[in-house]
Design a protein around this nucleic acid. Structure first.
Length: 112
DNA sequence: CATCTGACCTAAT
DNA sequence: GATTAGGCCAGAT
């Protein structure tokens, strides 16, 4: 089980990622006030099923973290495509789709 | 306490 | 671009 405070920070931040955008594990950790804890994000997503916006989290190089053509990768790709996020060769163009939050709004909402 | 694991990241090559 | 080495750190064993 993951620290409840970590969990709440991660969940609230993840819930703010808009349709049509993606975040990397490390970026999400940073925005959640947990710098350097990218791997914790992965552990959290793995441990807790039924997560809102889980499919919008990908690696910093734009690749879906699951092996190409795996059941989970296909599911994630399907979800991203349905939101307008292009996925080719298991990869998303970060320059086009990476979430760039308005920090003022985000900080006001999360208060870290 | 020591070691291993991983839906990771960065910089260098 | 792709690959690699080293770093990273909470959890599990």
């Amino acid at each position: 089980m993951i620290n409840i405070q970590y969990q709440q920070r991660i969940e609230s931040t993840l819930s703010m990622v808009p349709v049509g955008a993606v975040v990397s594990y490390g970026q999400l950790a940073d925005l959640a006030g947990l710098p350097g804890k990218a791997r914790l994000i992965a552990k959290y997503l793995k441990s807790s099923e039924t997560q809102i916006n889980w499919h919008r989290v990908i690696r910093s190089d734009g690749k879906i973290a699951f092996p190409e053509n795996s059941e989970q990768a296909n599911d994630q790709r399907r979800r991203l495509l349905s939101e307008g996020v292009l996925v080719t060769n298991n990869r998303v163009r970060m320059a086009s789709f990476q979430w760039q939050p308005d920090m003022y709004t985000l900080l006001e909402k999360l208060r870290y």
